[in-house]
Amino acid sequence: MTNTDWPLWEVFVRSRRGLSHTHAGSLHAPDAEFALRNARDLYTRRGEGVSIWVVPSAAITASSPDEKDPFFEPAADKPYRHPTFYEIPEGVKHL
């Protein structure tokens, strides 16, 4: 990084109350205060948000595509975690 090169930040926007923050994109800023303001100007200028999080991109730890199988495949064969796995006689309510 040269001395004029600002770090990258990830921006998460809550589009309205009751919903969680969703990743909107990224931007450059010299510090957290400016990252928030830049995010407000860039990602909510059409009224897209009511709350913003910014996180330094470097602070994110991501799972690796190499570990994709051990990470995610074991969850695929456990249908008993889902309600549709169970058979309930017709007419039984509130289940």
Binding site: W6, L27, H28, A29, R37, N38, D41, R45
Partner: peptide, 8 residues
Amino acid sequence: PVLEEEVA
């Protein structure tokens, strides 16, 4: 001076 500031 920087693209973000164009928007601001």
